[in-house]
Amino acid sequence: MRSKVVLRRLVKNKQTRYGLIGVLLLLILAYVGPFVAPYDWSDKDFMAFMQPPGPDHWWGTTQTGGDVFANTLRGLQKSLVIGFLVALISTGLAALVGAAAGYFGGWVDRILMWGVDLLLVLPSFLIIAILSPRLKGGTWLLFVLLLALFGWMITSRVVRSMTLSLREREYVLAARYMGIPGWRIILRHVLPNLSSLLIIDATLNVSGAIIGETSLSFFGFGVQAPDVSLGTLIADGSGPSTVISYPWLFLFPAGLLVALVLSVNLIGDGLRDALDPGSTS
């Protein structure tokens, strides 16, 4: 019943439709595109350096003869994976920590919220920037964990305050008087009733994570060469002279980044309107 109403509202919203179509197209482009493209992202074409877009290299080539189309799609894949993973982990962490703090209260609450406050005052960008070169040998998954670690605190505070009101609800009291243990009440009664908040938050976190990843990679702290992401590609193409003389190096990855973040944000806004019609901001 409710899910049907939400779905109808979601589809009726024009912006959400554009967002959904946008994300879908970008996903297809990122994962189907490489099969259609004539070059692989690791191929180097020594016959063509800095070629503008043409029939052979659709989006042109780089300084080292790499194919911009293949590189950009590879970067898009990476950014998408990182974005979704970070959003999933940070929202999950926020939900568990916030709900535990709110439900159990007392010293559990105090310790968890102390941790949250500590993480909030740490300059996350700086810490990731310092730590990431040391992880050079490790996988990019460590980078995902780092990004997630610094992105969940605000949501967990919101979850905690909502849990505080939920735990006084009669169905939670009823469960407690039945003798159901606390963690099971959190998983069965508290979190499902916060699902609309969590879904919205996860969606908006995706775009936040993508932006975070690209900006770190832009400064050389995130994804490390030879691997590419949208951030490293933009960095490569954004030297003061390159932007003007070889715009294709910069325009394609930057354009895809804008399209991706915009689409995800449109979906997030649409979801919020559909799940929570009261807030029309």
Partner: peptide, 26 residues
Amino acid sequence: IVFQDPMAALDPRMPVGDIVAEPLRA
């Protein structure tokens, strides 16, 4: 216990069968 407000006493996200079965499973 039976609560006052029948709206608030049942978890809106669970079907009735699960609600009644919850104490049995616990």
